[in-house]
Write a protein that binds this DNA or RNA. Structure first.
Lengths: 125, 125
DNA sequence: TTGACAAATGCAACATTGTTGCGTTACTTT
DNA sequence: AAAGTAACGCAACAATGTTGCATTTGTCAA
């Protein structure tokens, strides 16, 4: 994957954000840095590379967040943390510290996870 | 909420399915029973009533499933079970037997959950 | 440093998914 | 049976995501 104006801008924006961003939010933040379509393609590549992960909310809206803790582990990516969407401020944050425990029934094998919950966050409490 | 041709058809279809259905799948199954828009509105009402729940997959696609175990508990709905999407057959199923345990940090309060994982299911193993 | 190849971009067009307004239909209640 | 309102169909719109193709731009090797 090449280092381009668009890809670095997207990655920097995601890294600079405390919460997960939608495509729309990214587009607004990036203004005229690059095209709408390019953002989609960059996000696709970044998630493929494991630098970013995709979160689908309870309502079905899709957001992206940079992998803070993940990168340090090299290729053993672990996105099994919880995503919290605050119903007051609307922000979706990665709660990387929260361990989620579950056991799949016999015959099932695990590949990826997307664990989202909603409620009121600490800042809005 | 009134009992209409559309609402009963949607609910029966969801109840008769072993897996969660997308709007598109429902539309194909219901053929000319009702309009596309009506399906959206019925699904909205059914989820509001707690007879159906909405599942957002890892990839962001939205599915609906009838609440099998939930209904028996009356109004204390519990959708905290796991949703499993098989990457082989593509079906998303509710694993109601799987308990998911996690603890939110101080200051956070829980409202709803959407716990989705992917992998290979028992039938495709 | 330069040239070449391929990846990445922009643009336009399209596809899918979900929403809204409004006049009409059909449940439910009395 | 009548009335009131929820639900419907249709059309139009809005939002989100995808694809094809000509052009630009990183990257790598000479």
């Amino acid at each position: 994957m090449r280092k381009t104006k668009a890809s670095t801008a997207v990655l920097e924006t995601l890294r600079g954000s405390s919460h997960a961003l939608t495509h729309r939010e990214l587009q607004e933040l990036l203004q005229d840095t690059c095209d709408r379509v390019t953002i989609y393609r960059v996000l696709g590549r970044l998630t493929g590379e494991g630098l970013v992960h995709k979160v689908s909310d309870l309502d079905g809206s899709v957001r992206y967040a940079s992998c803070h803790t993940c990168e340090s582990h090299g290729h053993a990516h672990n996105h099994d943390h919880l995503h919290f969407t605050c119903t007051t401020c609307g922000q979706t944050r990665c709660l990387e510290s929260v361990e989620v425990a579950f056991e799949l029934p016999d015959g099932f094998t695990l590949k990826e996870t997307n664990l989202s919950v909603s409620g009121v966050c600490d800042r809005c409490a």
